[in-house]
Amino acid sequence: MQNDIPHSEDDTGDDQYDGPSKSQVKREMLALVDLGKELVDLSPERLKQLPLSERLYDAIRLAQRTTSREGLRRQVHFVGKLMRDADAALIQTQLETWKNGSKEQTQAMHRLESLRDRLLKDDQALTDLLTKFPGADVQHLRTLIREGRKEQVANTQLRPGQDPLRKHYRALFQALKTLHDTETTT
């Protein structure tokens, strides 16, 4: 006796689910919860820079104000749940930029501070700088260096409790930063 169940030509017998596995879905959800934890640790100013829905932003702010350990855990999981509707890849990219960019920016600032200190100590440093940046305003830089040196001398003669003079010291740093920024954009 033959099988009375009719078979169509399209039926290949593959009734398997082609979507992500249960484990994969769980991994993705845990990744969103971890991303939510990172968002809860951000400052309100940084949060405002991210593409967050109002509901997600409010949930993150509530988690930041929550003091109870269990309450915070539950709120973070709720933030993770709301992250399903957010552009998690864009948010993750921005967080990575802030983390990695800040390291590079800090290193660049340290290099500029070191250059400023060399300029205040040694005239040869200005010659080297002008070789690297031929379009720099030489007169302005010399004025800032001269005034910065005067500030250093005046700061050695301060009485206890007096604030050191830093106007030209800072202005020299800003001039170097402007030079560096114009160099990197061109």
Results as ranks from 00 to 15, higher is better:
175 A>L: 09
42 L>D: 05
10 D>P: 02
173 F>L: 01
94 Q>I: 12
166 R>P: 04
66 T>Y: 08
44 P>A: 15
36 G>W: 05
128 D>P: 06
130 L>K: 10
113 E>C: 14
54 E>K: 08
124 Q>G: 02
10 D>E: 11
165 L>M: 05
176 L>S: 03
25 V>K: 10
81 K>E: 11
52 L>K: 02
22 K>L: 13
6 P>F: 05
166 R>S: 12
129 L>Y: 07
156 T>R: 14
61 R>H: 14
137 D>S: 13
24 Q>L: 03
76 V>H: 02
21 S>D: 10
56 L>P: 02
129 L>G: 07
173 F>Y: 07
164 P>F: 12
57 Y>M: 13
17 Y>P: 02
78 F>R: 01
66 T>A: 07
33 V>E: 05
100 N>Q: 12
88 A>E: 03
153 V>C: 00
154 A>G: 01
28 E>P: 02
82 L>P: 01
133 F>Q: 07
169 Y>D: 11
155 N>V: 07
150 K>N: 10
147 E>V: 09
140 H>S: 09
49 Q>V: 04
151 E>T: 12
27 R>D: 01
131 T>N: 08
68 S>P: 10
118 R>Q: 13
159 R>N: 00
110 H>I: 06
86 A>T: 08
40 V>P: 00
65 R>W: 05
183 E>F: 07
103 K>S: 10
101 G>W: 02
71 G>V: 05
107 Q>E: 09
22 K>A: 12
11 D>G: 04
146 R>W: 11
90 L>A: 09
167 K>M: 04
20 P>F: 15
49 Q>W: 05
44 P>I: 14
113 E>A: 05
94 Q>S: 01
150 K>R: 09
53 S>N: 10
76 V>R: 02
88 A>W: 00
93 T>R: 11
167 K>T: 01
40 V>G: 00
107 Q>K: 08
132 K>V: 12
